[in-house]
Design a protein around this nucleic acid. Sequence first.
DNA 1: AATAAAATGATAACGGATATTATTTTATGA
DNA 2: TCATAAAATAATATCCGTTATCATTTTATT
Lengths: 127, 127
Amino acid sequence: MNYSKQREIIIDTLTKNAVHPTAEKLYEIIKREHPESKIGIATVYRNLNKLSSAGKVKRINALEDSEHFDNNTHEHYHFMCNKCKQIFDIEADIAPDLVKKIFDKTGFLVTDYDIVFNGICKSCQKK
Amino acid sequence: MNYSKQREIIIDTLTKNAVHPTAEKLYEIIKREHPESKIGIATVYRNLNKLSSAGKVKRINALEDSEHFDNNTHEHYHFMCNKCKQIFDIEADIAPDLVKKIFDKTGFLVTDYDIVFNGICKSCQKK
DNA sequence: AATAAAATGATAACGGATATTATTTTATGA
DNA sequence: TCATAAAATAATATCCGTTATCATTTTATT
C-alpha cells in the first residue's frame, strides 16, 4: 500500500473519532476539518475497504442501513443504543473462547465475527 | 395483522427452507413453487419486516450485502461459510447469559442481538 | 528524469430495500 | 349478507449506500 495524504487523513480522523462513524460521517468530518484536502467520498470508501481487508480497521455491521468503522481492531464487541444511536464498546470477556468452542463443537473454523448488541443504554433508560 | 394468502405462503416457504434465505431468494422460491400466486417482491419485503417486528421471524445481518431471514426465533447464532456461502446454526450455549452479563457490567439493557461468525465450514476445509 | 504502479476525484451505475398509489382482500357489525 | 373501513397487495418508481469507471495525479523505483 503506497502512502497517500488522503489515507493518512482518513486513518487519523477515524482514530480521533472513536464514536464508530460511518463512511459518510467520516467524510463529513474530514471535509470540515480539512477543507483544503478536496477528498472524495469514493476515496473514503475505498480506503476503509482496503484498511479493513488489511486488518487495520474493523468494520461493524450494526443492524442498520450503513456500516460503521472502528480503528480499534482488538477483540471487543459493540452495543448500539436504539434511542441515542450511539455505539459503545463492550469488553470481550463476557464471552470467552468463542472461536475454540465453535471449533471443538462443530469443526467450523471461525476467521472473523462481529457481535453487536442492541438495546437501551444506561443514560437513555433514565429518560 | 389480517390474514393474507401471500403471508401464509411466505411463512410457509421460510419454514420449509431452513437455509436462511434472503428476501430475494425467498421470492424466487415462492415464484417457482407458487406460480399462480403472482406475489410481488415488495410484498415479500413488507411481510418479512412486519413478521420480524412481531418477533415471528428473525432477521440475520450476515456481513454481506443483503439480509437473511430465519423462521427459528429461539436463541441461537449463525455461522456463514466464506467458501460455500451456506449459513449454519450454532447453539447458544457457547456464550451463556450475555444479556445479564452486559447489564451487570454496564447497565445497558440488551433487547436484541445478532451473532454471525464467518469462516470456513468443516466440509470446505477438506477441499 | 523516466517509468510503472498505485491512488485520487468526479460521477455514473448498481442493487437491495422502501415508498407510492391504485386496486383488491379481509374483518366487522348492522 | 351487504356495506364499510382497514389492511394488504401488485407494480413500479424512487431512494440511498456503496461500488465501478476512467481520466488524471501522485508515489515509488531505477
